[in-house]
Design a protein around this nucleic acid. Structure first.
Lengths: 250, 250
DNA sequence: GGATCGCTTCGGCCGCTGCCGAAGCGATGC
DNA sequence: GCATCGCTTCGGCAGCGGCCGAAGCGATCC
């Protein structure tokens, strides 16, 4: 049909994701948890009936999966492939896009500090974790892939991080994922997921209600320092010090 | 601003890619070569003035890069990240989408047989190559990454495939890339690019004019069989035998 | 069983945007 | 210097699609 031979499918997906309301819904779901239609309507800042139409389209296109439960309908991303696609778009948006002014918001700051990216950690915390593991020779990352070293595997086992091979072979179970806020890679893939899960289990980090943001707990402050040597602002919820110290308060 | 904290950037990219004309332009450029505005207009099946508007938008958004040369303007994808994003969208489109009826076309068949995917090989040929390398223990692929084995590195050196490490570290220079037509992984990343380049240099494959499709040459037929053990329909430009042999031609 | 709630469907409004014809502009060719 | 070519800009038209109010439908609560 068209000279490149490829179907119009990209245009369909693009059109779906091209509406701000739908894009916001998808972004809200990138955290990996299922949300109700009402919650997604709120996320997208539209009324319930408008959201309903959007969700129907996204579901029909196979981007979302839906499950009815009582009088609620829970929506989630249809597959990890969709999450990966969204990540890819976010990366391009962050890297290519003009460094546009974004009104600094508390929520944005919280996400930049630390967040989940589908099933692994991103933001300053995620990048710091990756940096620490690279510096210690536990993992090696490149543009095209990543792998855990032998010493890295031992390190992960010691921390009780699940490194059992899942259908894929040993070692190539880790991949770099470019961080849209830090513009540097963090660790995704099976290892990234296991790492994040273990941090939650240890009580080092906690999800922020209604958000993908995560905060480091007091226990996490010492844990990340002890095990990974991470200190300072990578663990802080807010990056910037107060801009002007109010020395002469009125 | 929005509750997920992420900017509206995904919506902007989606809206750009959501127009069939623009999507076709991007797909035409995924082959990696630069095309003129006129060629892209033809690909998108729109007039020159319409194409001009689209190209201006794509360039302003940082998805395309443009270079003037005489009275031509050459457009290409702004970065490999953009190509990777498009691949990701194609995969989702192919995998999630309903198995819609696509009018079988010669062009489509040619692309399914073999094509370049930005800088590496895809289609039946690309997948067969990946399968062969996996079967011979040259590479290992999983969902999250891939690596070349020691014996694989020796194999590649013997074929004069460039395996010199580029800024990334040794070995993790290969990644799986899900094939939209075969729905199975082929080899991308530095190794995938080097592999494809070597096949072109050896005269095993040739680009089809005005297309991402590649065809296996006679030399390639024997070469792929000798070095990779690939035979049969993976090397054929057309998958299907003629449906009904015209035994009683008029 | 009536009230409430969560979600969907319907209908009409309206704004955005893609489309092309015509014209303009710079580079090339003769 | 004039014709041609490749591309862009302008202007006006037309259609698609998102939005919300109102209404409908099923599940839940009391």
């Amino acid at each position: 049909m068209n000279p490149t031979g490829s179907p119009f499918a990209i245009a369909e997906i693009g059109a779906l994701l091209g509406d701000p309301a739908r894009a916001n819904m998808m972004l809200a779901l990138i955290a990996g948890r299922a949300l109700t239609a009402g919650e997604l309507a709120w996320c997208a800042r539209v009324t319930a009936q408008t959201a309903s139409g959007h969700l129907a389209k996204l579901t029909a296109a196979g981007l979302l999966a839906v499950q009815s439960q009582g009088r609620h309908r829970y929506y989630r991303l249809a597959s990890p492939l969709v999450a990966q696609m969204l990540e890819g778009m976010q990366v391009v948006a962050a890297v290519q896009g003009p460094p546009r002014y974004r009104p600094k918001s508390r929520i944005d700051d919280a996400l930049r500090a630390g967040r989940t990216c589908y099933d692994h950690l991103a933001g300053r915390l995620g990048v710091a974790l990756a940096d620490a593991l690279i510096a210690r020779g536990c993992v090696v990352l490149s543009n095209d892939g990543g792998e855990a070293t032998e010493s890295g595997m031992a390190f992960f086992r010691r921390l009780a991080i699940d490194t059992a091979p899942r259908k894929g072979r040993r070692r190539c179970f880790c991949r770099p994922c470019l961080d849209w806020s830090e513009r540097r890679p963090h660790i995704a893939g099976q290892l990234g997921a296991a790492l994040a899960e273990r941090c939650f289990d240890l009580g080092w980090i906690q999800r922020v209600r209604d958000s993908r943001a995560v905060v480091v707990t007091t226990k996490g402050q010492s844990g990340f320092k002890r095990e990974f040597g991470i200190t300072g602002e990578a663990l802080m919820p807010e990056a910037d010090p107060p801009p002007v110290p109010l020395k002469t308060a009125v």
